[in-house]
Amino acid sequence: MEDDKLLKDWQEPALQWDEKKARRMVWKARFTLWRNIIHILLIIWFLYMLYMLAIQIGYKQLGKEEELVRYATTLIETHYSGVKVGKWDYPSVELSPWLTQETTMPLFKQIGKWELVVGSVTVKKPFWGELSYQINYQQKELNDRDGTFNFALPRSITGDSPVKERKEQDYIWDQLKHISDGYVAEISLSSIHPQTPEQMRKLLSKYDVAILQMPVYAGELKTFKPSYTRSTDTYVPFLVLRPEVLYDEKSRLSQTTFHLNESVESAEKQLIPDLEYVLANGKSRFESYDEPRLAYLKEHGITVYGALVTGPVRELEKLQRDPEFHEFRLGRIEVWNW
């Protein structure tokens, strides 16, 4: 019995020592495992940062940032009336690890002499695939549209009989009548007959207004039928003749004008190259329209059928007396800044 007790006393310290040693070995193994995991994560993070740095440098060197901004602003400003894209501040473009480009640019309107921010546009361009964009328009009223305007095609273009009597929007003139002299506004108008851009400029030169844009007829309903039209007075998706915007050979913005009063000829020369640039440098939902439009414009030249103008409310009221204009649409009104 005494021998068994001695054996037991001898085995217990050995057992305790083995347990402590085992615990130390387990903690050492755990520490080694976590250290290796951290080292691997640091290596992955370091390689990721090198990869992002390399693609950012390559992206800058290739000038892709400027190309995206130019493409997006050209697409939006030639297809949406009533809004412009802020591009002078050189908006930064973010590049994802999957080479998706993304940028957000301010959206503004010119009311009188002021450029008022009315929203933003977020543009995404994957490495492969179609450019997508989301226009976020800040409404002032519940019934405020998306900031754009529609224009009625002249009856001679659609093959209908000429307008016998102008369609008046009495509520517009009643609204302007009750506004004092200290305000400016934007208003769109359609023309009874098709005009060249220079003819439209001369028609509007009698009034103290700034011509912001003109809707361009490019074969809609004649050489192709858009998916969206409205009957009675016919409305179709249209191209926009905008003031001249110039870029250098690296797609960097070099010059822009604010209205068409003095730049109609240069703006007219720019529209076809702009359309060619949009078609050559990306895909958009307008592509199926723009290809026949480009062919039509090259063959027939540029015809417009309205304008978007801004100026003092008393001057805008005078437009009602011009027999060539109808289908007026009143936009935003701001305090005097003319």
Rank of each mutant, 00 (worst) to 15 (best):
Y90K: 13
T78E: 05
Y71M: 01
L279K: 00
Q213I: 01
G311R: 00
K20L: 14
W17F: 09
S288P: 01
L297N: 07
Y217N: 03
F238I: 13
L330Y: 00
L153P: 00
K269F: 05
R145A: 09
S188D: 13
W114A: 11
P226D: 04
W17S: 11
I43G: 10
F238H: 11
I57N: 10
F328D: 00
D144H: 12
G306P: 10
S227I: 08
V278F: 03
W173F: 15
A14P: 00
E249H: 13
P91F: 01
L53G: 13
A210P: 02
P226S: 03
L189M: 15
Q320H: 12
Q175G: 03
M214C: 03
W173T: 06
F151L: 06
I43M: 12
H39W: 07
G86D: 09
Y217R: 03
T148K: 10
W128D: 08
Q56D: 11
Y51K: 05
K21S: 13
E276F: 01
D248T: 07
Y277N: 01
Q320E: 14
E67C: 05
D181M: 06
Y80K: 04
K124D: 05
F328P: 00
Y296G: 08
E77W: 06
V121H: 01
S191T: 15
I44P: 00
V278I: 15
D160N: 15
S263H: 13
F224V: 04
I111H: 01
E102K: 10
I135Y: 04
L99Y: 12
V245A: 07
L142H: 09
S132F: 06
Q101C: 04
L107G: 04
F31S: 10
L246I: 15
E244M: 14
L95E: 02
G147C: 07
F325W: 05
L319C: 09
P194Y: 08
E327I: 03
T196P: 06
P215Q: 02
Q270E: 07
E262D: 12
I272K: 08
E265K: 10
E198C: 06
G63F: 01
K125Q: 11
V85Q: 05
R145W: 09
Q56N: 11
L50Y: 08
Q199H: 10
Y71W: 15
G331T: 04
I44N: 08
S251R: 14
E220R: 03
D4W: 03
F238R: 11
R242E: 03
Q110E: 10
E198A: 13
M200W: 02
R166Y: 09
R30S: 10
D290N: 09
S227W: 08
G182L: 13
I157N: 07
E94P: 02
D146M: 13
V121K: 00
P237I: 06
T100P: 07
I157C: 06
V313I: 15
L62R: 08
D322R: 00
P13I: 02
K206V: 02
Q11H: 12
E65T: 07
Q199G: 05
T196G: 06
G306K: 00
Y277E: 05
S96D: 10
T78C: 09
N36Y: 08
D233Y: 14
S205I: 03
I43C: 14
D208F: 03
T103L: 11
E19I: 14
Y51A: 03
L253R: 08
L246S: 15
